[in-house]
């Protein structure tokens, strides 16, 4: 029944792509609601769809205008391999969305890009990773300086236990980006304006950042990241702890920011990937299955696994 439904939607997609994507996702949701009543026959069927072999990445993993690139990326946690041979480029000023079921390695890959995995003692990263042609895992590269160039926004808003002002000023002070107090004031204001938070907090700059609402806190974290003026911003499920209104604000913000920064975002929401990203990468069990233009991935995926995932056969 599901196959028949997707077939009919496939025809409609040609005329109205975005709507159909949302339909598909809605299908997925209604299906997962019905999951309780499934018989064991369906489970076996489901596992078969899960077991399709992955032979390299399909689609267009490489682009011309490269900002960051990874070749032959493997990641190990102790003896367990979490990521298998990922090869992908992130283009300048694009938003790359990474989707996939839980535990597929998309967050781990994101943390490869600014060497956040260095803070986990048992984690080992191999392969060649470049930012503007520079090897970011070379001996000469200091992870601290790298992270100033590749900023990160986390799943759970994590403002520091400081005032709103100090939260935003933190990175700029560390890196000595400003000389005078008034420059710092300007930088804080500029960052907060760009993160769309200025109007809400301009009178409360010296109140604690932890007192804001969840959505405001996440925008504060984005403002704090922007203040360091990075080249790339990595976002690890930045809206998964937020309500739909706060999510919409942050998605708008991402699209705005992509004019100035390169953004890589991990998300569980396929609607979100469809709404904000230029290209979408689908990860599965530590392997990069498919990378392509977002429209293409959601309307006409090349790989069977990608299609199964976005149509909600599993995940």
């Amino acid at each position: 029944m599901v196959t028949a439904m997707t077939d009919t939607t496939k025809e409609k997609q040609m005329t109205d792509q975005r709507d159909s994507i949302n339909d598909r996702v809605a299908n997925k949701e209604s299906e997962s609601n019905a999951a309780d009543n499934r018989s064991s026959m369906d489970d076996i069927h489901k596992n078969e769809e899960f077991d399709i072999e992955i032979n390299g990445t399909v689609g267009k993993p490489f682009v011309d205008n490269v900002k960051m690139s990874s070749r032959n990326c493997d990641v190990f946690y102790g003896d367990k391999q979490a990521i298998f041979d990922v090869n992908v480029d992130i283009g300048n000023h694009e938003i790359l969305a990474m989707i996939g079921p839980s535990g597929c390695g998309k967050s781990t890959y994101l943390r490869v890009l600014n060497r956040m995995n260095d803070t986990i003692p048992i984690c080992r990263v191999t392969g060649e990773h470049k930012l503007d042609g520079e090897d970011i895992y070379s001996k000469k590269m200091d992870p601290v300086l790298l992270r100033a160039r590749v900023g990160m926004v986390f799943q759970k808003p994590n403002p520091f236990p400081k005032s709103i002002y100090d939260n935003v000023a933190y990175g700029a002070k560390l890196h000595g980006l400003v000389r005078t107090r008034s420059d710092l004031d300007d930088l804080v204001e500029k960052s907060l304006i760009r993160a769309g938070l200025w109007k809400e907090v301009k009178d409360d700059l010296h109140k604690p950042g932890t007192g804001l609402s969840g959505g405001q806190q996440q925008r504060l974290c984005i403002a704090r990241t922007i203040a360091v003026d990075p080249e790339v911003i990595l976002m690890d499920e930045p809206t998964s702890a937020l309500d739909p209104i706060a999510t919409a604000l942050i998605e708008e913000l991402m699209i705005e920011l992509s004019g100035k920064y390169t953004i890589a975002i991990v998300t569980h929401s396929m609607q979100q990937a469809a709404r904000v990203s230029n290209r979408t990468a689908y990860f599965h069990l530590g392997k990069l299955v498919e990378v392509n233009e977002t429209d293409k991935v959601f309307t006409n995926p090349e790989h069977k696994l990608t299609e199964n995932y976005i149509t909600g056969r599993f995940g």
């Binding site: 803070t119 986390f154 933190y170 990175g171 704090r224 360091v228």
Partner: peptide, 24 residues
């Protein structure tokens, strides 16, 4: 998450300890 936030902005370990962990 507090430490990650600080590392993620290019703070060193000692900066993170002095400015984020100890105040918290």
């Amino acid at each position: 998450a507090m430490r990650d936030g600080s590392y993620g902005m290019g703070a060193t370990k000692s900066e993170t300890i002095r400015q984020v962990v100890i105040p918290a």
